[in-house]
Computed example of a mutant assay.
Amino acid sequence: MTSPAPTKPRSSRTSLIAIAIALVIGALVALAGSQGGEKIGGIPMFAIAVAAAFAIQVVVYIPSAIARTERFFDLTGSVTFIVISVGLLLLAPLPDARSWVLAAMVILWAVRLGSFLAVRVHKAGSDGRFDEIKTSPLRFLQTWVIQGAWVSLTAAAAWIAIGADAGARATFGWLSVVGVVVWAVGMIVEVVADVQKSRFRADPANRDEFIRTGLWSRSRHPNYFGEIVIWVGVFLTAAPALSGWQWVAVISPLFVILLLTRVSGIPLLEARAEKKWGDRADYIAYRDSTPVLIPRLTVHRAG
């Protein structure tokens, strides 16, 4: 997404294909997840949520494209989670305890993410990933549409369960309780990992160094581990409310796992670390002795 295609026509064609794929995936998930769900004005609530997720991105894209700025990109994604989760609660005829809990889980996560990204944008001023993309309206639109798909797929489990038929909902049983506990563990791990890394980077003595203390001594990417655990917890909480095609909601944790471990998360950071520190003996020792994702429980002792 950050590398320009060889020619302008090919770049436009590639962007159109990516936009079409993102919209088709969103539509298919909306169709499956809407089966057996509550409707508003004859339209399934989950379908409304997915359509709104994409619409919000396009609405914010327009002034952003005119100003050629990516300043509101990350924040818009976080706000979308919050706005739609609140909207579903307000639209739901009879929101139950699970609906309120799921909405709270998504909103708390999004508030934390949004504030974290807002601080990062304020400090950085601009995002180098968009330097070339924002000069092409179609390529820039592609990133916003893909963000709409990211929001929809990530929040699918929570939004489908909130919009499930009120008469067919299961009670808030043990599996949902387990889900809440799992979500809380994930949040704690992610927040602690991010705080530790922020403090590490704030210390001038650590300039151009890699972090290997705290949770980062047990996993090379503990924040991503926490993120995955969060969405597994959301899915477990939502699971008792699902039936039939609504089980497409499992795409939520699977999508997060795929995204972070195979696409834009760990692979990019590992490649960047290898390029920067790959010839250093201390980094090689850290890399070879520290799990890439799942933190080890024991303390590693050198030698």
Results as ranks from 00 to 15, higher is better:
Ile66Met: 04
Ala67Met: 12
Thr69Asp: 09
Arg71Gln: 11
Arg71His: 15
Leu75Asp: 06
Gly77Asp: 11
Ile82Gly: 08
Ile82Tyr: 02
Ile84Tyr: 00
Ser85Asp: 02
Leu89Tyr: 01
Leu89Met: 12
Leu90Lys: 11
Leu90Val: 10
Pro93Ser: 10
Ala103Ile: 06
Ile107Asp: 05
Val111Phe: 02
Leu113His: 12
Gly114Thr: 11
Phe116Leu: 15
Phe116Val: 15
Ala118His: 10
Val121His: 04
Gly125Gln: 15
Ser126Lys: 13
Asp127Ser: 02
Asp127Tyr: 00
Arg129Met: 08
Phe130Tyr: 02
Phe130Pro: 01
Glu132Pro: 08
Thr135Ile: 13
Ser136Lys: 06
Arg139Leu: 07
Leu141Ala: 06
Gln142Ser: 03
Thr143Trp: 00
Ile146Trp: 04
Ile146Thr: 13
Gln147Ser: 13
Ala149Glu: 14
Ala149Ile: 13
Leu153Tyr: 03
Thr154Glu: 12
Ala157Tyr: 01
Ala157Lys: 09
Ala161Val: 10
Gly163Phe: 01
Ala164Trp: 00
Ala168Gln: 13
Gly186Pro: 06
Met187Ser: 14
Met187Thr: 07
Ile188Lys: 15
Glu190Gln: 08
Gln196Ser: 10
Lys197Cys: 02
Ser198Met: 08
Arg199His: 06
Ala202Cys: 15
Arg207Gln: 10
Asp208Glu: 13
